[in-house]
Design a protein around this nucleic acid. Structure first.
Length: 424
RNA sequence: GGAGAGAUGGCCGAGUAGGUCGAAGGCGCUCGCCUGCUAAGCGAGUAUACUCCGAAAGGGGUAUCCCGGGUUCGAAUCCCGGUCUCUCCGCCA
């Protein structure tokens, strides 16, 4: 959420920035609504002041034994008027906040203008795609042949787009989770957390999934609770409504969770394999820091996520998302894309974003500087480190051999009981 | 699922025959003094948000004692609803 004062004072700039995102702003009514809200507020507050003063007078009169009926009579009218104004005020307030909640974050100046993913510049390429002297297979075919992935049976258990792993596949997924958590905690200094996988509406609102994107979420029947689409939600909300001490920043967490996404509107896309599932595993990195350090932290976060791919010897590249491709809450986002040989493309495997104050304002996560009065909002960042299912898919495709076996990256072998390859 | 208790400032914790309570006291923290060696003592200060005035420094106002309603001239204090926490019973990995 943007600050209402900022929107008020920079309405034209906000609209311009939003049009860079390819959004129609719908801010036409803002100015009027905001003005009405503030003038009514002043009126209400003046009346309340009058009431407070007179109430004290009444108390004094009564103590002195003087009748106060006339004043009480007057205050009856004042209170009725206040109630009337408050009712009107709550309507404008609601409209105003709905409007604010619907405004996406402003892109950072370093974010290139563009309309979709084809406009994202590649900022880095790492490793070389492997060369095969045979036609590389897609990971779903490899997985099926090795009997470690079984999407057909998964549909029996649940429905389309749920994964089912067996044997070395299940073990590999688990190995990846442990490997990623170990690297981030031991080498990068993150604190591991294991949060709830189900969260309430306030948490979803704080990180920006609600109110706009409810259709993308799985909602529990009978409860106003949701399955998390990413660990970002529960982990960012750890500190909701807190005022942190500056000395604790940056606060960095890593968390493994399953993620649940309804993938509304994605029918027909990536219908096969592990790329787009309703449930998948992810290790997430979350960072709370001071405003002046957040862009340096973003670079660190990105390199922390990249290091996993580097250690696994998977070729990847980093792209900078353009204005039209960024998520709702982000000010700047890098995507890491891993090489998928069967399709011959780089596929997103991590998304690392700086949200600046956007989430912190909704979540009321502030900090106090040493020796300074007042509070400031923290900046929040997060990134996948990494999406586990997609990493497994990349390992299968990049490590495949002509005989149908798959080589396990060296860094993972210790997590696989020394296993070097998965054989049919 | 059944029965009961409770939710006050960074923390602990007073405060109910409704008014002078944004809220005692303690702890913590900040600044100063004293003292001098890693202690104690003394003094002062120490919530958040919104809004108005002001170039600023700063000042005024409103709201907030879990949340939402209600009663009342006036509510931290009374009434209703909700949420959460704790205890006991039941059930359960």
């Amino acid at each position: 959420m943007l600050e209402i004062k900022f929107v008020r004072q920079n309405l034209a700039a906000v609209e311009a920035a939003l049009s860079r995102r390819g959004q129609s702003t719908g801010l036409a009514a803002f100015k009027d609504l905001d003005a009405r809200h503030r003038s009514t507020l002043q009126e209400i507050e003046a009346l309340r002041h009058r009431r407070n003063v007179v109430s004290d007078d009444i108390a004094r009169l009564r103590k002195a034994g003087t009748p106060a009926e006339p004043l009480m009579e007057e205050m009856r009218a004042v209170s009725a008027r206040i109630k009337e104004l408050e009712k009107a005020q709550s309507d404008t307030q609601e409209a105003l906040s709905a409007m604010l909640m619907a405004i996406p974050n402003l892109p950072h100046p370093s974010v290139p203008e563009g309309k979709d993913s084809s406009d994202n510049p590649v900022v880095k390429t790492h490793g070389t795609p492997p060369r095969f002297d045979f036609e590389p297979k897609a990971h779903w075919d490899i997985g099926a042949a090795l009997q470690i992935l079984d999407f057909e049976r998964a549909t029996r258990i649940t429905g389309a787009r749920f994964p089912l792993y067996f044997g070395a596949g299940a073990q590999l997924e688990r190995a990846l989770i442990n490997f990623m958590l170990d690297v981030h905690t031991r080498e990068h200094g993150y604190q591991e957390v294991l949060p709830p996988f189900v969260v309430n509406r306030a948490s979803m609102t704080a990180t920006g999934q609600l109110p706009k994107f409810e259709q993308d979420l799985f909602k529990l029947e009978q409860w106003d609770y949701f399955l998390i689409p990413t660990a970002e939600v529960p982990v960012t909300n750890i500190h909701r409504a807190e005022i942190l001490d500056e000395s604790r920043l940056p606060l960095r967490y890593t968390a493994y969770t399953p993620c649940f996404r309804s993938e509304a509107g994605s029918y027909g896309k990536d219908t096969r394999g592990l790329i787009r599932q309703h449930q998948f595993n992810k290790v997430e990195l979350v960072n709370f820091c001071t405003p002046e350090t957040s862009y340096a932290q973003l670079e660190t976060l990105l390199s922390n996520a990249e290091s996993i791919l580097a250690k696994l010897d998977l070729p990847y590249r980093v792209v900078l998302l353009c204005t039209g491709d960024m998520g709702f809450a982000a000010a700047k986002t890098y995507d890491i894309e891993v090489w998928m040989p069967a399709q011959g493309v780089y596929r997103e495997i991590s998304s690392c974003s700086n949200f600046e104050e956007f989430q912190a304002r909704r979540a009321e996560i502030r900090f106090r500087r040493k020796g300074k009065k007042g509070t400031e909002l923290v900046h929040t960042l997060n990134g996948s480190g990494l999406a586990v299912g997609r990493t497994l898919a990349a390992i299968l495709e990049n490590g495949q051999r002509a005989d149908g076996s798959v080589e396990i990256p060296e860094a993972l072998r210790a997590y696989m009981g020394g296993l070097k390859e998965i054989n049919p």
